[in-house]
Design a protein around this nucleic acid. Structure first.
Lengths: 344, 344
DNA sequence: TTGTAAGCGTTATCAG
DNA sequence: CTGATAACGCTTACAA
């Protein structure tokens, strides 16, 4: 076995054919005789020939690859999105090259440059926390590389987007608490400046409004990053409110979990005294005690949708397809933490 | 802005220089005058030139990219390994292209072929569950592409490996139970045919032996895939054993969690009546009640190590570096589920 | 049905 | 210090 790899030229010499014939045979070009095609493929297999995609890509000006930028791969949500992206990209014949910004703007910018040099045919990205100005993505528009954001999307840059309907999800979560008999519902909210968390607050308020319940500001506890620890702090504060809340809608599962633990320690029964709804459907939510009612954020589906959208845009590029925003509907998963069954 | 991208040829024409000068200037070749270099770079920036990596790769016969095959990206362990791989690959100037086998042998084989065509310079893989014969990876040896397995490694194929010391981890987990006063320790084990789980059983037995405790076979409950549900079944069976076990070492966190829930329902106190140790350090283990003593599997570090090892082999390829097996030592994280403090 | 030859955008060798 | 020119391995008019 030689060290350097077999090329179509080698095959051509062996078979006394021209390299164009070999190339065509390998690609099942109809003008090549069945017999020749068969022979070529046979020899290719025998010699362990693998086409050099780099060369073919250069020639065809294609790479069959898409770039993905996420804040961190090891976050549950993102790993599921990536899984969805890889799954549909694979089926449609594309490779996925992945980068983490680790929430650093500097690194995010560097990665956009690498992606341009690598000549990926499209980019899927979720902005990092540091990124307020996302103009480094504008370059992709100029060079006509389709761009799809998911979850944390850009406001400055023309692009397609895949997001969940945070307002609707929060609305339904809160309405579920109301239907289950809660009348004094609190909310543990995310960062005040982040769109998705603002939308959740709005959805929460809208549901209260619809059912003629007061949206009392001191029932809303804002956090900076929805951490487990912040959840506990908020829950403790809620315990000092009178009358005591009988339901809490939390903007993620972490805070819901720590709130439940605080409430249990305070000898409150879940859901009888306080019902709790989370957001994200982390694996733990179906295991903890009580199991947690939560919103499934459809991460895998978001990834699939983003990849499908992106690849459609790649393949219809001449037609200059307009940007598109796809809103994914979430599911409310009802479990024990709200199981008070008065009204459904 | 023209549709087709700027090339070094364009720069050459604009500056009345030859393309070789441009190429050298762009690569900071010492033979090019400071002034010329500066001018070239300036124009490149102005025109938004990005070097075409494909062309350069073809010419240099390099791709600066490594391929990663995992069973599923969205499994906690793998997402952390991938994160570690990406992190060190990025720092060392490599891209990572990622594929899921989804535990399908057919897909795993297809992916190894894509990786060859893509001319990745090295491969990191974790075998899928279906894979018993891994000879499809042998091709990488023939064409001198460095190969590193992690976690589920190949027996048939010469390759480097990054694994954790399952025997040692199990030994220390079990010994910790003994030190904490347990004398009748059970084990919820993984699949009998899987190496890593066999090693955990051995470690468990060795620890008992060292402390002159009997390794009673009916204290070992085997599962097929260490699922949450299987854990509950095993725990219930352990409740029927006399005398009741006073400690359980579980081969993963899922089974530890469900076992604890079963024990709690049976009105046993954790850790006073039964102490429990898990394996993997899932996020839930620090949140549940009681918090779970467990083995941290160092997923991120495994990824980093695998990437470092691989890239070293890529860059020293001429020297034909031998395969290497790196065993990563795990940490025992002591939490409340074993906090009986008799002896440390 | 097959062959010839140009070219994709670089880098590298050799001259000057 | 700079320029011509030949590759890298493949695809694709155009010819035969």
């Amino acid at each position: 076995m030689t060290n350097s790899r077999i090329t179509i030229k080698d095959l051509a010499e062996r078979l006394n054919l021209s390299i164009s014939t070999i190339s065509r045979a390998l690609n099942d070009h109809p003008s090549i005789g069945k017999k020749t095609t068969k022979e070529v493929k046979k020899l290719a297999r025998e010699l362990g020939f693998t086409p050099n995609t780099m060369a073919s890509n250069l020639r065809r000006n294609k790479t069959q690859s898409i770039g993905v930028i996420v804040p961190r791969i090891d976050i549950h949500f993102h790993s599921h999105v990536i899984s969805g992206i890889e799954e549909t990209a694979y089926r449609l014949g594309y490779n996925v090259t992945i980068f983490q910004s680790r929430d650093s703007l500097e690194r995010e910018i560097a990665v956009t440059e690498i992606l341009q040099a690598k000549r990926v045919e499209g980019v899927i990205a979720c902005l990092g926390l540091e990124t307020t100005d996302s103009r480094h993505f504008a370059r992709f528009n100029e060079i006509k590389i389709p761009l799809v954001f998911y979850d944390r999307v850009s406001k400055d840059v023309e692009s397609s987007k895949v997001i969940i309907d945070d307002f609707d999800a929060a609305f339904r979560a809160t309405e579920h608490l109301i239907n289950t008999g809660c009348r004094n519902i609190a909310h543990i909210a995310g960062n005040r400046n982040t769109d998705i968390f603002k939308a959740r607050v709005k959805g929460y308020k809208a549901a209260l409004l619809k059912h003629d319940l007061e949206a009392n500001e001191n029932l809303i506890q804002y956090t900076s990053e929805l951490s487990y620890e912040e959840g506990a702090t908020c829950a403790k504060k809620l315990l000092t409110v009178t009358p005591l809340p009988d339901g809490v809608f939390c903007a993620n599962d972490n805070t819901a979990i720590s709130a439940i633990q605080v409430f249990k320690k305070a000898n409150l029964r879940i859901p009888e005294d306080i019902a709790v709804v989370g957001f994200s459907n982390y694996p733990i939510s179906s295991i903890m005690e009580p199991t947690l009612t939560t919103i499934d954020d459809r991460a895998f589906e978001m990834g699939q949708t983003a990849a499908k959208l992106l690849i459609r845009q790649i393949e219809d590029k001449d037609q200059n397809i307009a940007s598109e925003t796809i809103v994914i509907k979430t599911d409310l998963i009802v479990r024990d933490s709200t199981n008070r069954n008065p009204k459904g």
